[in-house]
Simulated scan of single mutants.
Amino acid sequence: MSEGTMQLRAQRDQRDPQAKRAKRLTRVLVGAAAVPVMLVAAGCSSDSGSDDGKEKAAEESAASRTASPSPTVRPAAFGKLPEPCSVVSKKTLKDLVPKGDSGKEGASNDTATRAGCSWDSLDDNGVKGSQFRWLSVSMLRFESDVTRGEGDKLAHDYYLKQLKDAQSAEGAKSVKTAPVSGTGDEASLVRYDLKKKEGTFKQQTVVTRVENVVVTVDFNGAGLAGDKTPDADDLAKDAQKAAKEAVAAVAKANGAAAGGGTSSGAPSPSKSSSGQPSKSSSTAPAKDS
């Protein structure tokens, strides 16, 4: 073997181990690179299963909500109001407002929910003065509502509000409140004096609730131009009579009898609740004079 051939073999022998080591290193690197790929694939598979679980849980929750019964509330007893100017009998009107003409119906966008009527009378006695009377009946009906509650309970809350309003009328003197029996499910009388330049007005306000309807009767009288002041007790009796007839008219309009006791289960106001003060809208009669 020539010297040149031996030198070439020696060089080749030196390169072969390096080549072998390079090949082994390449295989190791390729294998190492494959590991993250497998881990990523496994991670994706795991995440996919988690998403599927969330979607399934969401679907089950939605199905559960769909299957749950909707909230309900007991329907209101009364669905309409009577014609407001006919709730007081002609005989009673003749006694309370003897010189009054036909009633004046109040404005309302929905007479099945809110309605009212008023009458006024001026009995002129010449130099002896005159007697003034003013009567007003207003009705407000409440529907049962899932979010707000049952109609009779909503009416009860409004009944208490009306009492507070009447008990603190602006300028009212000698305010007195008393329960009224035999009229609707709960009723109270608020009475007071209201002095004006024309004379002293004796105001009587009866607030009553029958089922889901609140009826408010305002009745006042005054002796003008020197005539005597009317008797407050007589006016109170007249106001209660008108309120009782109005309650009966509400019940009749809905095909029911007008009971005198609590029929709806709503709590009746206590004596303390009927004595709480607030503002009143019952000063209107004096303004009309």
Score class of each variant (00 low, 15 high):
residue 1 M to W: 08
residue 2 S to L: 05
residue 19 A to G: 14
residue 22 A to R: 07
residue 23 K to S: 13
residue 25 L to D: 08
residue 26 T to F: 07
residue 30 V to Q: 12
residue 34 A to E: 09
residue 35 V to M: 15
residue 42 A to L: 15
residue 47 D to V: 15
residue 49 G to M: 12
residue 50 S to C: 00
residue 51 D to Q: 10
residue 52 D to S: 12
residue 54 K to I: 02
residue 55 E to Y: 05
residue 55 E to G: 14
residue 59 E to D: 09
residue 61 S to P: 00
residue 62 A to Y: 11
residue 65 R to P: 00
residue 66 T to A: 15
residue 66 T to D: 10
residue 70 S to G: 10
residue 71 P to Q: 07
residue 72 T to W: 12
residue 73 V to H: 10
residue 79 G to Y: 03
residue 80 K to L: 07
residue 81 L to R: 01
residue 81 L to D: 00
residue 82 P to R: 11
residue 83 E to W: 14
residue 83 E to I: 15
residue 84 P to V: 06
residue 84 P to E: 01
residue 87 V to S: 04
residue 89 S to R: 04
residue 90 K to A: 15
residue 91 K to N: 15
residue 92 T to P: 11
residue 94 K to P: 06
residue 101 D to E: 10
residue 101 D to A: 12
residue 102 S to V: 15
residue 102 S to A: 11
residue 103 G to I: 11
residue 104 K to Q: 11
residue 105 E to M: 15
residue 110 D to A: 11
residue 111 T to D: 00
residue 116 G to T: 07
residue 121 S to L: 08
residue 123 D to Q: 12
residue 124 D to R: 14
residue 125 N to A: 12
residue 125 N to E: 07
residue 126 G to P: 13
residue 129 G to H: 07
residue 129 G to F: 08
residue 130 S to D: 00
residue 137 V to N: 03
residue 138 S to V: 07
residue 139 M to I: 06
residue 143 E to D: 15
residue 144 S to V: 02
residue 145 D to W: 08
residue 145 D to I: 10
residue 146 V to S: 03
residue 150 E to L: 09
residue 154 L to I: 07
residue 156 H to V: 01
residue 156 H to M: 03
residue 158 Y to S: 13
residue 158 Y to M: 11
residue 160 L to K: 05
residue 161 K to L: 13
residue 165 D to E: 03
residue 166 A to W: 04
residue 167 Q to T: 02
residue 172 A to K: 02
residue 173 K to M: 12
residue 174 S to W: 11
residue 174 S to P: 00
residue 175 V to G: 04
residue 177 T to V: 12
residue 179 P to G: 02
residue 179 P to K: 00
residue 179 P to M: 04
residue 180 V to T: 06
residue 183 T to C: 10
residue 185 D to N: 04
residue 185 D to Y: 03
residue 186 E to W: 01
residue 188 S to A: 15
residue 190 V to R: 02
residue 190 V to P: 10
residue 191 R to V: 10
residue 193 D to R: 02
residue 197 K to F: 11
residue 198 E to V: 12
residue 199 G to P: 09
residue 201 F to T: 10
residue 206 V to N: 04
residue 211 E to C: 08
residue 212 N to S: 01
residue 215 V to N: 05
residue 215 V to W: 09
residue 217 V to N: 10
residue 218 D to L: 05
residue 222 A to K: 10
residue 222 A to I: 02
residue 224 L to S: 06
residue 229 T to E: 01
residue 235 L to E: 01
residue 235 L to Q: 06
residue 236 A to Y: 05
residue 237 K to G: 06
residue 241 K to M: 09
residue 245 E to G: 08
residue 247 V to R: 11
residue 247 V to K: 12
residue 249 A to Q: 08
residue 254 N to P: 08
residue 258 A to W: 03
residue 267 P to K: 14
residue 267 P to S: 14
residue 271 K to Y: 06
residue 272 S to N: 07
residue 272 S to Y: 02
residue 276 Q to P: 01
residue 279 K to W: 06
residue 281 S to K: 13
residue 281 S to D: 00
residue 285 P to D: 03
residue 286 A to F: 10
residue 286 A to G: 09
residue 289 S to L: 13
